[in-house]
Design a protein around this nucleic acid. Structure first.
Lengths: 233, 233
DNA sequence: AACCGGTATGGAATATTGTTCCAATGTTGG
DNA sequence: CCAACATTGGAACAATATTCCATACCGGTT
């Protein structure tokens, strides 16, 4: 029976940190960690270390890891949507602005895409989906859409935007530089071309287009497609 | 020095299972577990127990948990897309068929939405995105779209469908019955109505529409919107 | 029949996480 | 100055994915 269990001796007490901990400082550090080390890089231990404290101190400000991710995602998304605040262009441009803001944010923070998708699937009252929905919705009125279609139209736009965002994450993750990106597209296109012709005729057929497409451009084209559909009502 | 370490005695060897393990049996069990206990219910422990074996045996057939999730997702998606195989309707109906197949699959397996989004963000060569892309793309030719737009159009449709899918997960998760669903929508709508009027004017304005909307209908309307946009070219 | 290499199994051990607990400290107001 | 309270940080805990390895089964070859 060698169980000593806790060997007691609640020891030390390094002098306290000078700058107080706060939810803001914590989420800030979390974002930095995510940017630097990717999705799996955010652990309470690494975070503790970076903030020169222990896990317990963090839990005083944040309920759990989910809330931490939520806060980090919200911070980045909020910043991305705030930026332009452009003095009113056409509603089309405004919507494209929101979409591009998100697109760029994901390009800089590849972990964002996964997170946003997750938040979205966690319910429509979470801050992140709300922000995006509102950011888009604000301009659909000006688009000339009849009021009883607002909800449907804004939802459609948001779903498209977030769906695209999720996909383009994979590009962003891999393709830091332009060269990497070319390689990535090449690998993807080649993979598509080697699919079974019976099972994947279409995908094979467009493999070449895929190799040469530009993410951003295609993304915006999609939005125009939806806007055109709205107009065609 | 009480370290005994491994107390040895590699003991027992219960007689082997009768029906052999296989990747199929494993993913099948994984799907059952996910359906029964939700996303967090799938652990190697639980899986081992259900299959009456140890974790090691599972790892012989599956590289890691990610691959397991991937396989489970792929199995369900494949089944969902195979079902109809309807004797050719209009291309519009075909595309709606693919979309609805996914929609229904998610309704039955709430964990699917998150998984599909994840796969999507893991790259365009993963089986699940491929299946969906192909399922949709096959019909865009018949839609009268010029060939050099195939990739863009199919991508737009897919992104919309998967974006919607992710969102509707939250509904599916909560709203098992019709009553639950009504409650859920009510809670959401109320939450929206209590938002800050300055920050969320639009969302507040459509809260009532949101309370009464029908997921499936709205989903299909969105698709029609995109199809209309395509036609308007 | 006895052996043998590769395939498969399953249970114990390990490493790494999220999370809880609590003694110790600062801080604030009486 | 002292007592309540807010905050800290480090150790302990529980749960997990994953690795390791001794074993068993199975096909063919001598």
């Amino acid at each position: 029976m060698c169980q000593d269990g806790r060997m007691v001796a609640r020891t030390r007490r390094a002098q306290r940190r000078t700058e107080a901990l706060s939810r803001e400082r914590i989420t800030e550090a979390a974002v930095e960690l995510l940017d630097a080390s990717g999705e799996g890089g955010l652990t309470f231990r690494a975070l503790s270390q970076r903030l020169a404290t222990g896990p317990g101190a963090i839990y005083w400000h944040v309920a759990n890891k989910g809330e931490l991710l939520e806060a980090a995602t919200d911070a980045v998304v909020a910043a991305a949507l705030a930026e332009p605040a452009q003095a009113a262009g056409s509603p089309r441009d405004e919507i494209r602005g929101v979409a591009l803001g998100l697109f760029n944010a994901i390009a800089e923070h590849p972990w964002l895409a996964t997170q946003v998708s997750l938040q979205l699937s966690h319910g429509p009252t979470k801050p992140v989906p709300l922000r995006i929905f509102e950011g888009i919705g604000r301009h659909v009125g000006a688009l000339g859409v009849p009021e009883d279609s607002w909800f449907t139209v804004a939802s459609a736009l948001m779903h498209y935007i977030l769906g695209s965002a999720a996909q383009n994450a994979s590009n962003a993750r891999v393709a830091g530089s332009a060269v990497d990106r070319a390689e990535f597209l090449d690998a993807m296109s080649s993979a598509w071309e080697e699919l079974d012709p019976d099972d994947y005729p279409f995908t094979r057929a467009v493999a070449r287009q895929a190799r040469e497409h530009d993410d951003r451009e295609q993304f915006l084209t999609g939005i125009d497609l939806i806007l055109a559909g709205i107009r065609a009502r």
